[in-house]
Amino acid sequence: MAASLEHDDLANLFLSLGALQPPAELHGYAAGFISVGGRLEQDGWLQHCVDLLDCEAPNPEQSDALYTVYCTALLGLESGEMDLELLLPDDEFDLDQRIASLGQWCQGYLTGFAMAGKQKVDGDKSYSEELTEAISDIAAIAQVSADEGDDEEGEQDYFAVSEYVRIAAMTIFAEFNALSPNYGDEDASGRLH
C-alpha cells in the first residue's frame, strides 16, 4: 500500500504544488491525526492536504504520493513494532535545517492531534500523566530554534530529541487507541479552516 517515502522527493512535490508547509509538518500532522483515532480514506486525506498545504488539488500521481504520507504514518503507528519513523531531512542537510524540520514535525503533530481530537475526544475523559507530559513536551519541541552549531554534541542532542518525539508519538497513539478501540471505525473528515 505505502511506497517508500523520501523527504527530498516529497519536498520537490510540495514545490510543484506551491505548498506552503514542509514535508515534515504534513507527516507530523498525519501522525497526530492518527494518534487520536482519526482515520481517512484517500479522498478525505487529500482534502486535509489541500487545506493544510494551501495548494490546488493534486493530480493523481501527486495524490498517491500525498496519501503515502498518511499510509506510512498509519502503518508505523499501528504495527505494534515501534516502527514509526519521522519524515525528516537526512544527515546531508545542515543540523539547523534538521532541527527546524523536527520543530515543524511537532507543530504538524499538534495540529493533526487537535483536528482529530475535536472530532473524537470526549471532554470528560482524563488522560494519564505520561500522555499529558508527552503532549506538553512535543509542544515545547515545536518551538525549537536552531541555535546550536554543527558539532558532535548538537548531533547527539538532535538524535536524542528526535527519538524522544518518535517514542512520545507512539505512546500517545497507544493510550488513545487503547481508550476506545472504535476510534478508527468512523470517518473523521473535518476540514481545516
Rank of each mutant, 00 (worst) to 15 (best):
residue 4 S to H: 13
residue 6 E to V: 14
residue 11 A to G: 05
residue 12 N to Q: 15
residue 19 A to K: 00
residue 21 Q to K: 15
residue 23 P to A: 06
residue 25 E to P: 03
residue 27 H to V: 09
residue 28 G to R: 04
residue 28 G to L: 09
residue 28 G to F: 14
residue 29 Y to Q: 13
residue 30 A to S: 11
residue 32 G to T: 07
residue 34 I to T: 07
residue 35 S to H: 02
residue 37 G to E: 01
residue 38 G to L: 00
residue 40 L to I: 00
residue 41 E to G: 07
residue 42 Q to V: 05
residue 47 Q to Y: 14
residue 47 Q to C: 07
residue 48 H to K: 15
residue 52 L to F: 14
residue 55 C to D: 05
residue 58 P to N: 09
residue 63 S to Y: 04
residue 63 S to G: 15
residue 64 D to H: 08
residue 70 Y to N: 05
residue 76 G to A: 01
residue 81 E to W: 13
residue 88 L to Y: 01
residue 88 L to E: 00
residue 95 L to V: 08
residue 102 L to M: 04
residue 104 Q to D: 14
residue 104 Q to Y: 13
residue 105 W to P: 00
residue 107 Q to I: 03
residue 112 G to V: 10
residue 113 F to M: 09
residue 116 A to C: 04
residue 119 Q to P: 00
residue 121 V to N: 04
residue 125 K to C: 05
residue 125 K to I: 09
residue 130 E to C: 02
residue 135 I to C: 03
residue 137 D to H: 11
residue 138 I to M: 07
residue 138 I to C: 03
residue 141 I to D: 02
residue 141 I to A: 00
residue 142 A to R: 11
residue 146 A to H: 10
residue 147 D to T: 15
residue 148 E to G: 13
residue 152 E to Q: 11
residue 153 E to W: 02
residue 154 G to D: 07
residue 159 F to Y: 12
residue 163 E to R: 10
residue 163 E to S: 14
residue 168 A to C: 13
residue 169 A to H: 03
residue 172 I to G: 06
residue 173 F to G: 02
residue 174 A to R: 02
residue 176 F to T: 06
residue 177 N to M: 05
residue 178 A to K: 06
residue 183 Y to F: 15
residue 184 G to S: 14
residue 184 G to Q: 13
residue 187 D to V: 12
residue 188 A to T: 07
residue 188 A to D: 12
residue 189 S to H: 11
residue 190 G to L: 11
residue 193 H to P: 09
